[in-house]
Nucleic acid binder design. Structure first.
Lengths: 219, 219
DNA sequence: ACTTTTTTGTACCATTTCGCATTTAATTCC
DNA sequence: GGAATTAAATGCGAAATGGTACAAAAAAGT
């Protein structure tokens, strides 16, 4: 379970806690949980293999409601992807920012990543960014740019990590933080892919351990 | 162009060069080129988003002929994947076996990989193993086992590479060939994914260079 | 010439797919 | 209680999909 609660934690605006007194017939669904269900489906089967009927069944919303709430299938996919990114970022940002040794930060990031990639009632689901890159990204410019953004965001987060590890003397003078960051991202990608091939967690953890050893001792 | 000629280079059996004198109406297509076209389509759009009509149009075979020659859509996908693997292996095996310094072997492997991943008339196509892992692998056990095989084959090839580099003293005593091999595979995977996001070749080459530097200097 | 064999080409079928138009239901405002 | 508003539910429809039946065609064997 990666999804965090949807309550906006902003301190301003204390009002509208539960009853904004809307005008017409009330919704029979909660948009956030419905979007979560849609994301689950898309993560398992991908865009093309997920039908609106599947989505309708999973969310409990009938097709017109789905359409009204999220737009067409592509828009729903995009919103699902944004949700995925938000959740993943929320799960990792604290660790990336933590004032902890490099090795510990890497280990924690990869543990969270494995949790995300291996979760799912009907099998591991991998990384949605990687899945989307592998499918829609070539042909859909809008989706592609989101994917690039996702890839870049991860590179940057790792980049900062290695850069300040180097500043703190945890890495040798000659170490190249950008290159190490790309290798750290690559490790994320490889475990995401292997997770979908149902490689067991123990093996993925071994790959991660080997990578962390190399990355912490590099050059 | 990765496809090699389909002539079986076995020295035995010199006969059957062009006319085996078949019995009925002759085929209007060459199975190998048709399979190549099917592979092109599957690589671009994936299994679910490629229709039999698309395949029929691309191969020039009508659906019943397609069906007769390759079986149903899934079987065609599997045969396409095998073809992809055969081609990729053929393009790399000599380099993996070459008696050359580690760095040179890695550089050559990655150059070939980029050629494969970036080729395609309608955009880069990435790695078919990665694409298949990202889509069909979770739900189809048969396809999944082929994917695992593909991933493992690459790990092993890199493993041998690093192991004998270590034996030759190109790597320090403490180096862990298996871990380095996984990182080398991870680099393959990350460039495959980024290629599909249309990251330009120069950037991918920079990522590769950084990775090779780390891998050749590790521990 | 005619049979046999293999492949092609046309046409069809049942299902699924996405999307929407229309009707019905539940709620607030007056 | 009635009008207005918002959403759910039903169901239609046109297109696409995977797959196949069946007839016509092109070759070899006799």
């Amino acid at each position: 379970m990666v999804q965090k609660s949807r309550k906006p934690p902003s301190a301003a605006k204390i009002e509208a806690p539960v009853a904004p007194k809307r005008r017409g017939r009330p919704r029979a669904y909660e948009p956030d949980v419905a979007l979560g269900k849609a994301l689950d489906l898309f993560r398992r089967d991908g865009f093309a293999a997920t039908s609106l009927d599947d989505l309708s069944a999973a969310t409990g919303m009938n097709r017109p409601s789905l359409y009204g709430a999220f737009g067409d299938k592509r828009e729903l996919y995009i919103k699902s992807y944004q949700r995925y990114r938000d959740d993943a970022r929320a799960a990792m940002v604290d660790i990336f920012r933590a004032d902890a040794p490099l090795r510990e930060r890497l280990e924690r990031i990869y543990r969270i990543a494995l949790d995300i990639y291996l979760s799912g009632e009907s099998g591991p689901r991998g990384c949605f960014t990687v899945m989307t890159a592998a499918s829609e990204a070539v042909s859909d410019p809008g989706i592609r740019s989101m994917v690039v953004e996702g890839l870049t965001e991860l590179d940057k987060a790792f980049g900062i990590c290695f850069r300040d590890a180097k500043e703190r003397g945890e890495l040798p003078e000659g170490a190249d933080p950008a290159a190490l960051a790309h290798l750290a991202s690559a490790t994320i990608h490889t475990i995401a892919i292997r997770a979908r091939a149902r490689v067991p967690r123990r093996e993925l953890e071994a790959i991660v351990k080997g990578a962390v050893d190399v990355l912490c001792a590099a050059k």
